[in-house]
Amino acid sequence: MGLGLLSNTLVLLGKELRTELRSRELLTTTVIFILLVMVLFSFTFDPSSSEARRFGAGLLWLAFLFAASLMLQPCFLREQTNDTLSALRLAVSDPFAILLAKLAANTLFLLATELLMLPVFAVLYNVPVFPVFGQLLLVFFLGSLGVSVAGTALSAISAQARMRELLLPLLLLPLLTPVLVASTQVTAGLLDVQPFVQWKGVGFLAVFDLVFLTALWLFGEYLLEE
């Protein structure tokens, strides 16, 4: 069972990556969206280096969260087009593989766009990020994983309702409050003049990820029911 889950997940992850890399629809739109938020945000405050250190972390994470709530839309809608979700449910031994592959793919996509936008942020707002790149990568990973776990679950829910495009952000964003608070806090520490790692925040993000992964593992198969 465990081996079947792992191999099914890898096969499905391969499929997700292959389809996305072929069209690059999600990655392109998400990158452009984040870029847009970054540029527009500069008009709402004086974008000097010291101000950016104060607001930068929040700006980054808010942009990531909103971008994610858009990026996660097609996750299950795509599977509805030809009812491929049913084909997957018939084929896999454990339906959790479907969710696991999706959330892994979403985490990777999100992380990729975040890393792509990080140098742009550093240049636009004049905040050095290279010295703390490793630590930032850790926060980005834990935060994106949390966003993807909750987001994948809720995108499976919203895909089955009316007004789904509007619904997903409304369901997802309040649920992600803890991720926003903790990641912003840790990132702000890293962007400080004297960078420091808030391990409490890092640990909190790990706990959030673990709690939601467990919930998804327990209740995930019901999400895919018809």
Partner: peptide, 8 residues
């Protein structure tokens, strides 16, 4: 529905 992916 065909239950196959159009993009593959």
């Amino acid at each position: 529905a065909t239950m196959v992916y159009d993009d593959l």
